[in-house]
Computed example of a mutant assay.
Amino acid sequence: MTSYDGPAVRRAVARFADLYRTVFTAPPWSEGEDRVGEFGARLVDDTHRPGFRAVVAHLDGRWVGFSAAWPTQSPFPANRSYGAVLRQLGADRVAAELVGALEVDEVAVGPAAQGRGVGGRLLEAVLATAPDRRAWLLTWTTSPQAVGFYQRHGWRPARPVPVADGQLVVFLSPDRPRPSARGSA
Rank of each mutant, 00 (worst) to 15 (best):
F16G: 01
H58P: 00
H58L: 14
A112V: 15
R93G: 02
A12R: 14
G110C: 04
T25A: 05
Q73P: 03
F52C: 07
S30G: 04
P28L: 12
A12Y: 00
G51C: 08
A84G: 09
A91Y: 02
G100M: 02
A12F: 03
V107F: 12
A69H: 04
R116L: 15
P50C: 07
Y20C: 05
F39E: 00
R93A: 12
V99R: 12
V55N: 03
F76H: 08
A8S: 13
A84L: 13
V64C: 07
P111C: 04
R80N: 07
F66H: 11
S67T: 14
T47D: 03
D60T: 03
G6R: 05
P50Q: 10
R42I: 01
P77A: 07
A91P: 03
R42C: 04
R80H: 14
R10A: 10
Q73M: 08
F52K: 11
A78D: 13
D92H: 11
Q73N: 04
V85W: 08
G110A: 15
Y82I: 02
P50H: 06
Q88G: 10
H48S: 15
E106Q: 14
D60Y: 12
L86V: 04
G32M: 09
A69M: 03
P7M: 10
R11F: 00
H58T: 08
V55D: 08
G65F: 11
